[in-house]
Design a binder for these strands. Structure first.
Lengths: 246, 246
DNA sequence: CGAAATCTTGAGTATAATCAAAAACGGTGG
DNA sequence: CCACCGTTTTTGATTATACTCAAGATTTCG
C-alpha cells in the first residue's frame, strides 16, 4: 500500500492543461495501491463487483467477453495511462474480464475515492467521464471494423489504431511499437480464426507493409496501411494533432 | 422552442429513486427544444461539432458509421428515454451519424445546460455518466456479437436485446414489440448482407421462433431464442429485475 | 393505381473456418 | 549452455458460411 502522486501518470487520461492547480493537486492526492502483476493475470472477471478501478502505469491490458463454449472476443486493448475499468465506478457488475497481456504495473484506486474527488471537483468528473466516452468511441469503431471490413483491412486498421494510441502517449514514434500479443489474441480481437489471422499477417508481411517479430510491430508503409485499413483517427478523439502524421 | 418538465421522460435514463427532490427539480428544469422529425432524418452527422444533445421522447433512432464506399455499420439502436449523443457533451467531433428510423419526437438540450446542471449537482453528473457507460457496455456486447457469433445466433441476440430494452421502459411485454427496421438496416446492424439476413430471418420464422411482419416483432419461443442468441442481459445493467423473465 | 422500395429466391463464388500436422520459438531446469 | 517441453507459428487440404449478382414477387406509399 502506497500513496503516490498520480499527476504525471494521468496526463494522458486528462487533458491536463484545462485543469487548475487545485484540481491537479486533488487528482495527485488520490490514494492508490501499486501492484505488479504477471502475464495473463485476470484483474477482474465478468460477474465480479469490484470496489476499485485500475490505472495502467506500465504494460498492456485487454478486456474480453466469453461467448459460449471456448470462444471469446477481445473487446479492447489498453496501454499505459488508460483506466480500463473506470466504468465499474458506476456499473456494479463487470460485463467483461480484464487481463494482463504482459507483466504490468498498475495503480488501484477505490471507487469511493474517485466518487469523492468527482463530487468535490466537477471538472475532474468531466475528465474521467470523457475518458470513458473515448473508450466507447473505440468500441464503436471496433463494431464497424469487425462488421464491415475484410480480414486484411480489419487487421491493418487495428495496427494503425495501436500505433496512433501509443504515439499519443509517447510510447511509439508512429512507425514502430511493442505488440506483445500472440496471433491467437490478435485473432480473438478481430473476430478471426488463428489460421486465417496467420495468413493475413503473412500477406501484410509479404507486401512489405509491416514487420512483426519478437513482440514488436514495425510499419514499413504507413500511408498504404492506413489506406488498406480505411483508418481515420477521428474516433480516438486525440486532442494533440499528434494523431496521424506520416 | 419550449421549456418543459423533463422529469418523467428521463426516468429510464436516471435511476430516479436515488435522486433528491432538488436534483429531480434541477433535471426537470433543464430548458429543452422539442422537435418532430421525419423518417431517415440525420440529426447529427460524422464530423459535425454539435452544441446540443438529444433526448429521444418517442420513436427509434440509430447511429451509424460510414465505411469506405457505400458500406455502413449501424452501431446501435436507441429507444424512448435514451440520449444517443450524450457523448457529444465532452467529445467535440461526432464520430457517428444519428438518424431517425421512423418519425420521432425528440428534446434537444444545449451542452452548456447539461454541463451547468452537472457542475451544480454532481449526482446528476453521475446519472448522465452512467447512461453513457451503459451505451458503452452495449457496444462491447455488439463487438462480441458480431465478432464471435454465427449469423443466426447474432440475429437472435439482437432481437433479445431489443425486447429487453423496450421492456425495461415499458414499451414491450417482453414478447412482442415494434421493430421499424428494414431488412437492410438489420443487416447493416449485424454486419451481414441483405440476402443473408433474409435467409436467417426465414430460418427463424420457419423454426416458429419469431414472427416479423408489418414492423412488429413477436417472439414465439423466448427461451429458445435466448438460447440460440446466447443472450445474458447482464450487460444492459438494468436495475429493475424486469430484465428477463419468461 | 402506379412507382419505388423492400422482400424473396436462385445460382455461383469467395472469404474465412475447421481439421490436422509439422516447424519454429521461448523459457526452464539440469 | 544446452536439451527439452510446451507454446506459438506456419502450412496444407477441405468445408462451410456468408457474399455477390440477378431477377421476380410483394408491399408500401404518394
Amino acid at each position: 500500500m502506497a500513496t503516490t502522486n498520480l499527476e504525471s501518470l494521468v496526463r494522458k487520461m486528462i487533458s491536463i492543461n484545462t485543469l487548475s492547480d487545485e484540481e491537479r493537486a486533488a487528482l495527485g492526492g488520490l490514494p492508490v495501491t501499486i501492484a505488479n502483476l504477471g502475464v495473463q493475470h485476470d484483474i477482474v472477471r465478468e460477474g465480479d463487483r469490484p470496489v476499485r478501478s485500475c490505472l495502467l502505469l506500465e504494460g498492456y491490458l485487454f478486456t474480453s467477453k466469453h461467448i459460449g463454449e471456448g470462444r471469446r472476443q477481445i473487446t479492447s486493448l489498453y496501454v499505459a495511462g488508460d483506466i480500463p475499468d473506470l466504468q465499474s465506478v458506476h456499473l456494479e457488475v463487470m460485463d467483461m474480464t480484464l487481463t494482463t497481456l504482459k507483466p504490468c504495473r498498475v495503480a488501484f484506486i477505490q471507487h469511493e475515492a474517485i466518487k469523492a474527488v468527482c463530487m468535490d471537483y466537477p471538472r475532474l468528473a468531466f475528465a474521467f467521464w470523457r475518458s470513458t466516452l473515448i473508450d466507447a468511441a473505440i468500441y464503436r469503431e471496433w463494431v464497424a471494423n469487425i462488421g464491415q471490413r475484410s480480414a486484411l483491412s480489419r487487421t491493418a486498421h487495428l495496427m494503425c489504431e495501436i500505433l496512433a494510441r501509443l504515439r499519443a502517449v509517447g510510447l511509439s514514434d508512429g512507425r514502430s511499437c511493442e505488440l506483445p500479443t500472440t496471433q491467437t489474441e490478435l485473432a480473438d480481437a478481430l473476430g478471426l480464426s488463428v489460421v486465417h489471422m496467420q495468413r493475413v499477417l503473412k500477406e501484410l508481411r509479404s507486401a512489405q507493409l509491416i514487420e512483426l517479430r519478437g513482440k514488436r510491430l514495425t510499419v514499413l508503409k504507413l500511408r498504404e496501411l492506413q489506406e488498406i485499413g480505411d483508418f481515420d483517427p477521428t474516433y480516438l478523439h486525440l486532442r494533440e494533432r499528434a494523431a496521424l502524421a506520416a
